[in-house]
Design a protein around this nucleic acid. Structure first.
Length: 820
DNA sequence: AGCACGCCGACT
DNA sequence: GTCGGCGTGCTC
């Protein structure tokens, strides 16, 4: 019989799969999709997933053997493998990277090197200081990890020292698998089989006549479960039993010791499967009904529908109806939400409808709980709908009918730091396609990419323009800060209009929200006379003020100069720094309205998990009159009594040094405005700006995202309108693929220090694929770089010369790996 | 990613 | 001399 081989995905960032041979005794256990343990390299052990099985012996190397099979049945299905393969290709990462992101860490095992002190060692060698430090530490701890030694002793290069100590037999090392997922267990008690008949039970009573406590406990057990059931071996949970009859631990242990009771560990789930009363779906309003009909119709023609529904239009109700429809068809549904939106509000609402058919998968869940959600889906046990954050696209679905991506524009759908740098919204489309499922994107403020896809006909668009319960769209009033400043009417950061409106609202016992984007902290400079804001001559973004060096710096290209004494436009010596935070606002508003109850919500006040909910709850029940906050207050919450929303500094959003500043500003202002308005009453938004005629301000007033994006997308000559950008697509080519990847990685890292976030590492094809339809690319090749620092110099020089040309305003450096 | 190996400058 | 930094190569 021919030897069988398996190609395994290991959690390492190496582009290939690894081939191992299957030993005879594991042949009938090994299967595609199961996890196996293998040795990798000289010392490491990993669990990897079997991707393929075959009989092709590798020609140029010797295989190692599979050491163990971890699963009875596959834990990764065929559709997931297809999804992983797509992701590794599209986001330019390795299968191992995807594997790492996909599996909850409880399902991944990795060995760890343990250093053990050799207590038999007696010889007295002369040791160096560092060696002595390590020996002292290890002999105290007896067993420890290499990381512990490194942290405790502070020694950088620990390996040579360790290898010396191993050679001298002072310490030795072994590899230990890290603890992985363990089912939660509980001890249960039962009468031992030997005593499960009346005769032997009677013997037991006799035996216990000198141990009255134990006898009593045994009687209590029997009376608790009933004699019949006790004789059938019925179990009681140990803690339950002990709690009921007082802490009789020693008596109980006595009974176990005598063999009258047996104690067993059984696994119990961590998840709450208790059924709730399933609430009948609410009837839909006429507008909602029309929208849902339109969604169904459009889904017959296109895979993806964008539901553009203004704030408070009742999108969730529509989702619930559509989910129900899928469940009735026997299909699964994935409901994606951005991290912050996964509040108890939405969870509770869906729980009410779907009871124990609803699974929840997000970061607040412990890893063990995630493993249990994973297993539940594998076993087709309870869940038909999963409500989750971006990583839930990796769950083992096998029969998806619908994927809902709520708040589609949210940036937290994009994973930035560890590879795979995936956009869960986009990945969801691919996932749905694999399942033949439909996608519904929902938002009040679509992302520019999604709008583009609507324009180009890839997505269908369904609109829901009516707010439910007769809530009207808010009235947006622009307050001209420049004008007020000229007339010397400004009361610190507030226009007289805003102060007046706040006063009126408070008189009527209505609530006020004041919005100051935290990003306003990043200070810029503005002329008090003519409101000119110094901008970078290369990049067309506002210069950021750095106080410690008294410089204005461009966060794009690094262009920097000393803060001038006078305005470059009008010559007046009246340049002042702008940019103030929520804390300042809170301080000042209290001066104007000393009687108002004021609360603040931003990163500083919500550090602890609970305070976020406390602040919201306080505001909801009316314990707070004025809520000041950053973009946090714009997400996912409906307040009942808000009549005034103040946007304190629209300019800071428009001038934020980022090429997406305009679309972000539009989205934020639209979302915050949506907080205003109550039942049958129109709310007001006071929008403070120095530039009332700014196109974005006009579009916010008109609530017209189309007009806004049409400008952005260049339907009207994109390149005339800021902000726009170019991608420098830097291709690195080396003689072999590994070298290339490494060089690209190093170069990107180095450049990131110089250019910040705008340098996208070797994963960059993402951006280009989505956006380069609107962007002209410049491809620059750096072949066989002499050294990283040389390459960095070259690239910097090239970028600076490029952005010096008038047609290039800002630059994204994209390090691309040439797949030769 | 880790880890081993080998080269070279800078120190007791 | 040798310690330690860093560049390079390899992992089935």
């Amino acid at each position: 019989m021919k030897t069988r081989f398996v190609d395994i995905i290991l959690p390492v960032p190496i582009p290939q799969l690894f081939t191992y041979s299957v030993p005879f005794d594991l042949l009938n256990q090994v299967e595609v999709g199961k996890r196996v343990v293998v040795q990798f390299g000289r010392k490491k052990y990993y669990s990897g997933v079997v991707f393929a099985m075959h009989e092709n012996a590798p020609v140029d190397y010797q295989t190692k053997e599979v050491l163990a099979v971890l699963d009875a049945t596959a834990i990764v299905n065929d559709k997931q493998f297809k999804f992983w393969t797509w992701m590794a290709d599209y986001y330019q990462c390795t299968p191992g990277d995807v594997y790492k992101a996909a599996l909850p860490s409880g399902l991944k095992l990795e060995s760890e090197t343990h250093v053990v002190f050799n207590s038999d060692h007696e010889a007295e060698e002369a040791l160096s200081d560092k060696e002595l430090a390590v020996v002292t530490f290890v002999s105290e701890k007896k067993v420890c990890t290499i990381h512990e030694i490194q942290n405790q002793t502070g020694i950088q290069n620990i390996y040579p020292i360790l290898s010396k100590l191993i050679e001298a037999e002072i310490v030795f090392v072994n590899e230990q698998m890290r603890d992985a997922y363990k089912p939660k267990t509980i001890n249960v008690l039962a009468i031992a089989p030997a005593f499960q008949n009346e005769a032997s039970l009677k013997d037991a009573f006799d035996e216990l006549n000198r141990a009255p406590k134990q006898l009593e406990l045994l009687m209590q057990f029997i009376s608790m479960v009933g004699l019949n059931d006790a004789m059938k071996g019925k179990t009681v949970q140990r803690p339950v039993f002990l709690e009921k009859f007082g802490d009789q631990t020693s008596a109980l242990n006595g009974l176990i010791k005598r063999g009258i009771f047996i104690q067993e560990q059984i696994a119990i789930g961590r998840l709450d499967y208790s059924t709730r009363e399933v609430i009948v779906t609410n009837p839909l309003s006429e507008a909602q009904q029309q929208a849902i009909d339109a969604i169904r119709l459009n889904h017959q023609l296109k895979e993806t529908v964008l539901l553009h529904g203004v704030t408070s239009s009742g999108k969730t109700e529509i989702y619930i109806h559509l989910i129900e429809e899928q469940i009735n068809k026997g299909k699964q549904v994935l409901y994606l939400l951005p991290e912050i939106a996964l509040t108890t509000q939405i969870t509770a609402r869906l729980k009410k409808h779907f009871g124990n058919h609803l699974g929840i998968y997000h970061s607040k869940y412990s890893d063990a709980e995630r493993v249990e959600v994973w297993n539940d889906l594998l076993e087709h046990s309870h869940y038909k709908v999963v409500l989750g954050v971006r990583s839930s696209v990796f769950l083992p679905f096998d029969n998806l009918g619908l994927v809902i991506v709520d708040e589609e524009h949210e940036t937290s759908y994009k994973q930035y730091d560890p590879a795979p740098r995936y956009q869960a919204r986009d990945a969801a489309l691919v996932l749905a396609h694999l399942h033949g499922a439909k996608v519904l994107l929902g938002t009040a403020t679509p992302s520019i990419e999604t709008y583009y896809n609507v324009q180009s006909g890839k997505f269908a668009l369904v609109e829901l323009n009516v707010r439910h319960q007769g809530i009207q769209m808010p009235q947006i009033i622009v307050a001209d800060v420049k004008e007020a400043r000229r007339k010397k009417q400004m009361k610190s950061h507030f226009t007289p209009l805003l102060i007046e409106q706040i006063g009126k609202a408070l008189e009527k016992k209505e609530q006020v929200i004041l919005f100051q984007n935290r990003r306003g902290f990043s200070p810029y400079v503005e002329c008090n006379e003519c409101a000119t804001i110094p901008k970078c001559k290369h990049c067309d973004v506002s210069m950021t003020y750095h106080k410690h060096i008294n410089h204005l710096t461009c966060h794009y290209c690094g262009y920097s100069y000393v803060l001038p004494n006078s305005c470059a436009a009008c010559g007046a010596p009246s340049l002042e720094t702008r940019g103030f935070g929520t804390e300042k606002i809170e301080e000042e508003i209290k001066l104007f309205f000393p009687d108002a109850r004021v609360s603040r919500m931003d990163l500083d006040t919500t550090r602890s998990k609970k305070s976020h909910e406390t602040i919201i709850a306080d505001f909801e029940v009316g314990n707070v009159d004025i809520l000041i906050g950053t973009q946090m207050i714009s997400k996912g919450l409906d307040f009942e009594r808000v009549s005034i929303v103040g946007i304190l500094d629209a300019d800071s959003m428009l001038n934020y040094p980022d090429f997406r500043a305009h679309e972000r500003a539009f989205q934020l202002m639209a979302q915050v405005s949506g907080r205003a308005g109550r039942k049958n009453k129109q709310g007001k938004v006071i929008l403070q700006t120095t530039d009332p005629s700014h196109p974005i301000i006009n579009q916010v007033i008109a609530n017209d995202f189309r007009a806004m994006y049409d400008v952005q997308l260049g339907e009207r000559e994109l390149f005339k309108y800021p902000p726009f950008y170019r991608i420098i697509n830097l291709t690195i080519k080396h003689s072999d693929a590994n070298k290339t990847a490494k060089a690209a990685g190093n170069l990107a890292q180095g450049l990131r220090h110089v250019f910040g976030e705008r340098v996208l590492g070797p994963h960059a094809p993402v951006i280009s694929r989505i956006q380069n339809m609107h962007i002209r690319q410049i491809v620059m090749k750096v072949e066989k770089t002499a050294s990283i620092s040389k390459a960095k110099e070259m690239v910097q020089a090239a970028i600076h010369s490029l952005i010096a040309q008038p047609e290039y305003r800002s630059v994204i450096v994209q390090i691309d790996v040439d797949p030769q």
